[in-house]
């Protein structure tokens, strides 16, 4: 027996004579019986797959297909594991580990190859190396610069602008203009700048809070005619649409991360992670009773970003 064979204890010669080694006996007490059992499992799996095929051809039924597929593969799985466990030599088998690291000499020889030859190839031609780096560097700059840049526009004023401008009417999602009598006190709805219905940045919460208890910030005295207040619907935390209005407490709730905003005090955040008030939209009511914007929002809408204040 050679030493190399000794490393691995599973050898063909021994398999031919299982009695020679206790470890080569099968784990199953009665291998024949186990073989029959596994065979039955495989047959049952085949039947399950056949039935599954029939179900599929006859017009697909998700639950049945899933169940049959699971049953089929379950039988196969149990059978295979049993085969691998009970009809195999029970072991345990031992494998020796070898040191992963190479010997000092081998490491040195490798370093010689790498550095010794490298010196000849590279060190004496450092100028070439530099020129190559410059060429590839320029290509790198191209990929990370212009190429990436072409994926989309640079951030620009679009982060700060919405379609709301002086005189733009507030309309519903279907484009119907809102008049002063459309919402009763305590009511609210989502409105858009006319011509930009359904947009992300233009979505605005129009709340008729009534005139009681409103704390108006200085400079915003004329922004809420007839008890109407309009705030950007985009949460200042992570940008979800704020869709819950609690009339009793006059609060707006963002359903994503539960920031609460007080409608009566300029939608300032009173709870949760939102750091800034919802930007307010100054409104006026024209001679025909339509609600119109006096201008854009009081502050860039939505979550914060690096250039928000610039």
């Amino acid at each position: 027996m050679s030493t190399e064979q000794n490393e691995h204890h599973l050898k063909e010669s021994e398999i031919e004579d299982p009695q020679s080694d206790e470890r080569l006996r099968l784990l199953a007490k009665d291998p024949k019986q186990m073989e029959i059992l596994i065979g039955i499992l495989f047959v049952v799996a085949t039947i399950f797959f056949v039935v599954m095929m029939v179900v599929y051809v006859k017009g697909s039924q998700t639950q049945l297909e899933g169940g049959l597929m699971a049953a089929g593969f379950g039988c196969l799985g149990v059978g295979m594991v049993a085969w691998g466990k009970y009809l195999m030599p029970k072991g345990p088998f031992v494998e020796e580990r070898h040191q992963l690291a190479s010997s000092k000499e081998e490491q040195d020889a490798f370093a010689d190859v790498l550095l010794g030859r490298g010196k000849i190839a590279i060190a004496r031609r450092s100028a070439l190396g530099k020129l190559l780096s410059i060429a590839l560097g320029v290509f790198g700059i191209f990929t990370l610069g212009p190429l990436l840049r072409s994926l989309g526009p640079n951030p620009d004023a679009s982060l700060k602008k919405t379609a709301w401008k002086k005189g733009i009417r507030a309309v519903t999602i279907n484009g119907r203009p809102i008049t002063v009598n459309d919402i009763a006190v305590g009511g609210f709805m989502t409105v858009f700048p006319e011509g930009d219905e359904g947009s992300y940045s233009g979505q605005t919460l129009l709340i008729r809070a009534g005139s009681d208890n409103i704390t108006t910030m200085s400079g915003r005295e004329s922004w809420g005619p007839e008890g109407y207040l309009a705030y950007s619907k985009v949460c200042t935390h992570a940008g979800c649409p704020i869709s819950l209005y609690q009339q009793e407490t006059q609060q707006l709730l963002c359903p994503c991360h539960q920031s609460l905003f007080n409608v009566l005090t300029g939608a300032e955040p009173v709870f949760g992670p939102a750091p800034r008030p919802l930007p307010q939209l100054p409104l006026y009511i024209d001679s025909k009773g339509f609600l119109r914007a006096q201008g854009g929002f009081s502050y860039p809408i939505g979550p914060g970003y690096w250039e928000i204040g610039s």
Binding site: M69, A70, K85, G91
Partner: peptide, 18 residues
């Protein structure tokens, strides 16, 4: 041994996911 068992285990994973 292991290949049979692990093959069976692949089948069982498929079964659970199915």
């Amino acid at each position: 041994g292991f290949m049979f068992k692990t093959q069976g285990f692949l089948f069982l994973t498929v079964a659970v996911l199915a």
